[in-house]
């Protein structure tokens, strides 16, 4: 059980800041969904949490410990998993090798975790020797999620896990995410399919121009007319 707090974080890629004082919280076992227009800094926020870009103001804490300034491999070691929006697999490696890399910090658990991931995605078990670069977008997304689950994370960061998926596959993915969450894994998820994502969320955050504009329960955001007109397609 892990709690994440992002407090007044400022940062970016070196030029002007992309994050301009964003705050949010994920309590243990919660699903928190971040929505917002393209370029709002949602992916940048994920990267900041994972130590991939510098944070020069504000705090990011995991169970009270400030993690701003840690390297990505150290953040991973704290029990956080992360599926980036793009390039989220090792395309030149096989499905099995991708999953093995997921358990890099806990090689002794590889076999047990791989069995758990294959339970969740039986399709991957059949394909374990296939090179990921030769697979379809939907299958690659399963590999990406599977890799992140190999560490047995307590908190999972998902950046648009259903992007580019057909509606039935997207629905299936949300189902899987819900199943993972039901085992106590906290989820912080950026989503464009806002309506479906908010439906499984404990809380939603609307992010605009590098800041959290609204934070509310999933149903409340779904009912908010402004949010509806901007992000839910009317």
């Amino acid at each position: 059980m892990t709690a994440l707090r992002v407090e007044d974080v400022h940062g970016g890629y070196g030029g002007t800041d992309i994050l301009n004082g964003v705050s949010l919280a994920v309590d243990p076992g919660e699903v928190v969904v971040v929505i917002g227009p393209n370029g709002a800094g949602k992916s940048t926020l994920m990267r900041a949490i994972f130590g991939l870009i510098g944070v020069h103001r504000g705090r990011i804490t995991v169970d009270g410990r400030n993690i701003a300034g840690l390297r990505p491999d150290q953040v991973s070691g704290l029990g956080l998993g992360y599926v980036p929006q793009d390039d989220n697999t090792f395309a030149g490696m096989t499905v099995g090798e991708n999953l093995e890399m997921g358990a890099f910090l806990r090689p002794e658990h590889t076999a047990r975790r791989m069995a758990a991931v294959f339970d969740l995605f039986p399709r991957l078990a059949e394909r374990s020797h296939q090179r990921v670069g030769t697979m379809s977008g939907g299958e690659r997304q399963m590999v990406a999620l599977g890799r992140a689950l190999m560490t047995e994370p307590k908190l999972l960061l998902l950046d648009e896990p259903t992007a580019g998926l057909a509606p039935d596959l997207a629905a299936e993915t949300f189902e899987r995410i819900r199943a993972v969450n039901s085992q106590g894994v906290g989820i912080l998820m950026v989503e464009q399919n806002a309506r479906q994502a908010l439906a499984i969320a404990d809380r939603g955050v609307v992010m605009v121009m590098g800041r959290d504009r609204h934070t509310d329960t999933g149903p409340a955001l779904l009912a908010d007319p402004e949010v509806a007109s901007l992000f839910l397609g009317g």
Partner: peptide, 19 residues
């Protein structure tokens, strides 16, 4: 394996815990 992973996708290798 970490070396191959890093040559394949450096950022994802770091996210996976590779130093």
């Amino acid at each position: 394996k970490a070396m191959r992973a890093m040559a394949d996708n450096a950022e994802l290798a770091r996210i996976s815990g590779v130093d």
